[in-house]
Amino acid sequence: MAQTIRVDGVRKWYGDTHAVDGVSFDVEEGEFFGILGPNGAGKTTLLEIMEGLRKPDDGEVSLLGMRPWPRNPRLLPRIGVQLQASSFFERLTAREQIRTFASLYGTPPAAADHWLEVVGLTDKADTRTEKLSGGQAQRLSIACALVHGPDVVFLDEPTAALDPQARRNLWDLLREINNQGRTVVLTTHHMDEAELLCDRVAIMDHGNILKSGPPAALVRGLDAPTRIGIETGTVPVDGARQLFPDAEVSDDGVSLTVSTRNPAAVLSALADRNALRGLAVRGASLEDVFLDLTGREYRA
């Protein structure tokens, strides 16, 4: 499989701050790749080096077989970037906005109007971008990044500051973009989002990639206990402790939770006693992987 992006030993220092401190990874063609980490982890700097906005102090980036730095006009039409939500020309309507971006690439206005339709903004075409909601502005800015039909798309925290509905709406759009065969690289500090969307993620903190791989593999690799919850009172706490001596049992007055590495045994024992009222089974999530790696509170 072709490697669309190759990052090799990239470093970037600002004075004593190591924004990116020796990062290497590959992104394959058509892959949905997530760079995950808290604010200030160096995600945006890394993304900007990959896009060719910044020169790495050390290391190399190859994008579609070319070097993004210094500015490479042959590469630019093949990549689409969304830098931040409000990267719009002032006081233009949604249609004027996307048509302006389209013209920068020699793309005809009809394609711009088509993209407005794809992101569901046709009825907002004559609305000024300042008046769009957060979700609408994000969809427009993604459409502006895609209007010229790039092969690789870079999105910097596309769902930051969106409400849950707008976030889900945007996820559908991002999946669709990736389904069309484009390689998508996004940064996020939402673990759930990365877990849901990305083929592979790289977890980043303090300028380093701590771990990378498919989200499910990272979670499995954590070997974390499964938490099984039932309604309080279904089984007495002491009874549960005797029943599952290897597990950790706690009760907060609402749910009784059993944390175990052998969920099958616990579930069948509870089922035998017909004690599954209010059952909720939670495996480890990417967030657990992250907390395990960084060993401290997640700083969103």
């Binding site: 394609a111 039909g149 389904n179 065969g181």
Partner: peptide, 22 residues
């Protein structure tokens, strides 16, 4: 697969066939 000739997408309005890449 180039984006322009992408397989049928999940959303009906999606295929950006008119996108004219230089």
């Amino acid at each position: 697969t180039a984006p322009d000739s992408a397989p049928a997408s999940a959303v009906a309005t999606a295929p950006p066939a008119v996108v004219d890449r230089p």
